[in-house]
């Protein structure tokens, strides 16, 4: 165990997996120099053949991953920012997500599409999006969203070893340093969430960068005598339905904290699952704490207004429990 921030933990996972399996290759814009630190040192360690700097061309990059995977490699396509997924979306939506199905399983596509997502950095609307609602609806790709450095390592290693296209989406800020296992087989299974705080009064389901805020809200609520079952969702496709339904059975109240815009967000889908499969256990409406239906603004004061903060989570729960 050692305390690490998000980007070094991602880097460690990449180093370990590229060491373990020489079919793992990585390419992306500035992969060698590494803009954000995920790929630092990889080119020095594994060479320019396996770690390639690409031109700025997301359209071909996303498609190349499909072709290289079909031909036996395990490509990691590093797309930098989540918004650039849109630039390369044809090959994601029409090829990567469909090819295995259309060919009746003739082909495995072990691809990791990697990007940082979300706001909070005054990066404005074209570098702050949460693209996973669109990805969740494609059907043919997995989507994981680690919340901290430990889950970042465990999920990335699982994503690289998975035989399906996996979107690996992390917050850019990276949160605070966490203890990260040194074990080079430390895997967090895709499709499993983690209950990171136990309580009986309300369930919070949080995604990615919202988990740290939900944890802070949980502490505040504890101080007020409210017990929170906090679930760090980690995987959006597939979703760990058992864990969220079991928690709802225990608490009867659920809020979902999601940095996506509200319309067709992960939160709204989870809400639909819970009302569909666990309606009789609900003591109050399922609430969603999400981003307002706007682009992410540049100004810090505007940005923090539209992205959920700790106080929004606390207020939502207090209203739900009619404590206000």
């Amino acid at each position: 165990m050692s305390k690490q921030r998000m980007m070094p933990a991602i880097n460690l996972a990449l180093q370990e997996e590229m060491e373990r399996d020489n079919k793992v290759i990585l390419y992306g814009e500035d992969a060698g120099i590494s803009l954000l630190g995920q790929t630092t040192g990889l080119q020095e360690n594994f060479g320019k053949d396996r770690v390639r700097d690409t031109p700025i061309c997301e359209n071909i990059m996303t498609g190349m991953a499909v072709g290289a995977a079909a031909a036996g490699y395990r490509p990691i396509c590093h797309l930098l920012y989540g918004n650039f997924i849109y630039t390369g979306f044809d090959s994601i939506a029409n090829q990567a997500a469909k090819l295995k199905y259309m060919t009746a399983g003739q082909v495995k596509l072990p691809i990791v599409y990697m990007a940082v997502i979300g706001g909070g950095r005054s990066a404005a609307a074209q570098h702050s999006d949460i693209p996973y609602p669109a990805l969740m609806n494609l059907g043919g790709v997995k989507v994981v969203v680690p919340s901290n450095s430990r889950t970042a390592k465990g999920l990335l290693k699982s994503a690289i070893r998975d035989d399906n296209p996996v979107f690996y989406l992390t917050a850019a800020g990276g949160g605070r340093p966490e203890e990260v296992p040194d074990d080079d087989n430390y895997l967090i299974p895709i499709g499993k969430s983690e209950v990171i705080n136990q309580g009986n009064d309300v369930t919070i389901i949080s995604i990615g960068s919202m988990t740290l805020k939900a944890l802070q809200a949980t502490k505040k609520l504890n101080e007020k005598g409210i017990g929170v079952d906090l679930i760090d969702l980690l995987s959006l496709v597939p979703i760990d339905e058992d864990t969220i339904i079991n928690s709802l059975k225990k608490t009867g109240r659920v809020i979902i904290v999601d940095e996506a815009r509200d319309i067709c967000s992960a939160a709204s889908h989870i809400s639909a699952i819970l009302s569909d499969k666990a309606f009789k256990y609900l003591k109050s409406p399922i609430k969603r704490v999400t981003v307002k239906d706007v682009a992410i603004p540049y100004s810090p004061i505007l940005e923090s207004h539209v992205i959920p903060e700790v106080a929004d989570i606390v207020n939502c729960i207090e209203e739900l429990l009619e404590l206000n």
Partner: peptide, 8 residues
């Protein structure tokens, strides 16, 4: 893109 990936 698929063909380029296979070429790679």
């Amino acid at each position: 893109g698929l063909a380029v990936g296979a070429a790679l």
